[in-house]
Amino acid sequence: MSTATSSLSEYREQLKNNRLGLWLFFVSEAFLFTGLLAARFYLWGNTRPDLDQNLGVIVTVILLASSFSMNRAETAIVHNDRETFLNSLLVTASLGLVFLVGVVGFEWQGHIKPQDGAFGAVLYGMTGMHALHVFSGIVFILIIWNNGRNGHYSGERHWGVEACAIYWHYVDLVWVFFYPAIYLMGKVAH
């Protein structure tokens, strides 16, 4: 077996362990987010605060679109299409930033404040924890983009990109449950 083949097989073995580790991290994160969801149903019951529905659906669509561009970036590096990879990463980070502005810059400036009882506590707890993950995801993407610009990844070796992409999709996955729980489920409490 040549050195290159041996090195590649070692890398693949390591990749398997890396993936398992990342998914275990997601399981631990799932406990955190499920706890927040449980708090929402315990404290809000079948009601919800009167939030801007348009804003909710817009930020949701933006996050979904960012997941698409992240998937495009990952697909591009798998096929050694570096230009699409780098551009798609920038698009993803920009969409993530727009999502953050939508939640922190607009939703948090609404009529509900953190001190407004159960509605305020849960709303800010859920959106705040999620926004923190979006922010860390953007930082992660920018690091990957910088590494990619310096030629650190190839079609065969791109674990960093894969981890970043899966992390970003996980953030999207959490919002898939948070969006209906915050904006859509239950009757508006007056």
Partner: peptide, 17 residues
């Protein structure tokens, strides 16, 4: 999302990309 974006099935693959 789990299947098409996060490729959850890759956990059972032998280190394939």
């Amino acid at each position: 999302i789990l299947q098409f974006f996060m490729h959850v099935s890759s956990l059972w693959l032998e280190g394939e990309s």
